[in-house]
Lab assay of single mutants.
Amino acid sequence: KELVLALYDYQEKSPREVTMKKGDILTLLNSTNKDWWKVEVADRQGFVPAAYVKKL
């Protein structure tokens, strides 16, 4: 499975999103959308801005 690194803190703004902290390592589930990537963090799945994460 592919992992991404959170480059910035992100606070979810809708139930479809997830909160992450800078430095978090997240499991990447889907990166087909260039703006929003689906990730899993702490047993929750949701979207984060693609610009806020980097593939490892």
Results as ranks from 00 to 15, higher is better:
7 L>W: 04
3 L>T: 08
3 L>W: 14
1 K>F: 13
35 D>P: 02
32 T>R: 10
25 I>G: 00
24 D>C: 07
19 T>K: 04
55 K>C: 11
6 A>L: 02
37 W>T: 03
7 L>N: 03
32 T>K: 12
21 K>N: 08
35 D>N: 14
55 K>G: 06
30 N>G: 07
20 M>T: 04
9 D>R: 03
27 T>D: 06
7 L>E: 04
33 N>K: 08
52 Y>Q: 07
45 Q>G: 07
50 A>K: 06
48 V>S: 01
40 E>H: 07
15 P>E: 13
4 V>H: 03
9 D>G: 06
19 T>I: 02
2 E>Y: 11
14 S>E: 08
20 M>H: 01
27 T>S: 10
24 D>L: 05
10 Y>N: 00
36 W>C: 07
15 P>H: 10
17 E>W: 03
5 L>V: 15
17 E>L: 05
49 P>W: 04
8 Y>A: 11
55 K>S: 08
11 Q>G: 07
6 A>G: 04
42 A>S: 13
32 T>V: 10
27 T>F: 12
40 E>L: 09
45 Q>M: 11
40 E>T: 07
8 Y>C: 14
51 A>C: 15
41 V>L: 15
25 I>K: 05
6 A>H: 00
15 P>G: 09
38 K>R: 11
16 R>G: 14
54 K>D: 09
7 L>C: 09
46 G>C: 04
30 N>D: 15
13 K>Q: 15
28 L>E: 00
32 T>F: 10
56 L>V: 12
8 Y>H: 12
45 Q>F: 07
15 P>W: 08
8 Y>I: 09
1 K>W: 13
16 R>Y: 13
17 E>H: 06
29 L>V: 14
39 V>I: 08
26 L>C: 09
53 V>A: 03
41 V>Q: 14
22 K>V: 07
41 V>T: 15
42 A>M: 14
54 K>E: 15
35 D>W: 15
8 Y>M: 13
44 R>Q: 07
15 P>Y: 09
14 S>V: 05
34 K>Q: 11
31 S>H: 09
2 E>P: 11
19 T>H: 05
45 Q>D: 10
50 A>V: 07
27 T>Q: 11
11 Q>M: 14
43 D>T: 09
33 N>M: 10
26 L>R: 01
21 K>C: 12
10 Y>I: 01
16 R>F: 13
26 L>G: 10
10 Y>A: 00
22 K>C: 08
22 K>Y: 05
50 A>R: 13
51 A>H: 14
41 V>N: 15
22 K>N: 05
25 I>V: 11
42 A>E: 14
12 E>R: 12
39 V>S: 00
4 V>P: 00
24 D>Q: 14
41 V>E: 05
43 D>Y: 10
29 L>K: 05
22 K>P: 03
9 D>T: 06
48 V>D: 02
39 V>F: 00
22 K>D: 02
12 E>H: 09
2 E>D: 12
26 L>N: 01
5 L>K: 08
9 D>P: 06
11 Q>R: 10
51 A>D: 12
46 G>V: 04
19 T>D: 04
34 K>E: 10
34 K>N: 12
23 G>K: 02
36 W>Y: 08
25 I>L: 09
51 A>I: 11
41 V>P: 02
9 D>W: 04
36 W>I: 02
14 S>N: 12
37 W>Y: 08
8 Y>L: 11
1 K>S: 10
33 N>S: 11
28 L>M: 04
50 A>N: 03
